[in-house]
Amino acid sequence: MAKVHFTSNLRRHVDCPSVEVQALNVAEALAQAFARNERLKTYVLDDQGHLRKHMRILVDGAAIKDLRSFNDAVQPGSEIWVMQALSGG
């Protein structure tokens, strides 16, 4: 099982505890995480299903490369982090 984590900044707005997923790639991992809470998807992906600007996804510490289809491989035991910068002022 891989695990998907979200930041405390995102948890402030939407219910998104870390979840265990059975996935071969990031797309599958995200789909399982979003299945728990459909609102979560809208915070991470834009209307076109693309990763929102200034958000990053790391698999085992490395930033994924496929930002449109999320085909980057996931291993059993992988740690997947959905991260973001913060904007404002």
């Binding site: 707005h13 809208t42 915070y43 929102r52 600007k53 200034h54 958000m55 910068a85 913060l86 404002g88």
Partner: peptide
């Protein structure tokens, strides 16, 4: 407008 998290 949550900035990087989008419009809600």
């Amino acid at each position: 407008n949550h900035g990087h998290f989008g419009i809600k």
